[in-house]
């Protein structure tokens, strides 16, 4: 049973007000020296079997069409050891 992790992040040029709010909380909690916080989504996908090329092709398609919106987001996909 392979595990695949897809991380989705807003593209750098897209404003991330949630990340900015989190960064504001850092300062209020007296943690300083933080230049930026960006918030994303992490999907942990467990396959029935191995991470075959065909299975990964399906997951790349899902990452592109469902898990992320390529207009505003980018994703990375990796198979966990």
């Amino acid at each position: 049973m392979a595990r695949v992790v897809v991380d989705v992040m807003l593209k750098p040029e897209i404003l991330d007000p949630q990340g900015r709010a989190v960064m504001g909380a850092f300062a209020r909690l007296d943690v300083h020296g933080v230049a930026d916080v960006r918030q994303g989504k992490r999907f942990e996908i467990t396959l029935d079997g191995d991470a075959t090329d065909a299975a990964l092709a399906d997951l790349h398609r899902m990452a592109e069409e469902l898990l992320s919106n390529p207009v505003i987001e980018s994703y990375t996909l990796r198979v966990e050891d």
Binding site: L10, I14, L15, P17, Q18, A21, N69, V71, I72
Partner: peptide, 17 residues
């Protein structure tokens, strides 16, 4: 409509949250 790519762009979280 934007998610379906019938219109360009996207709608995101209000800048003031």
């Amino acid at each position: 409509l934007c998610e379906s790519h019938l219109l360009p762009g996207a709608l995101t979280r209000n800048d003031h949250l």
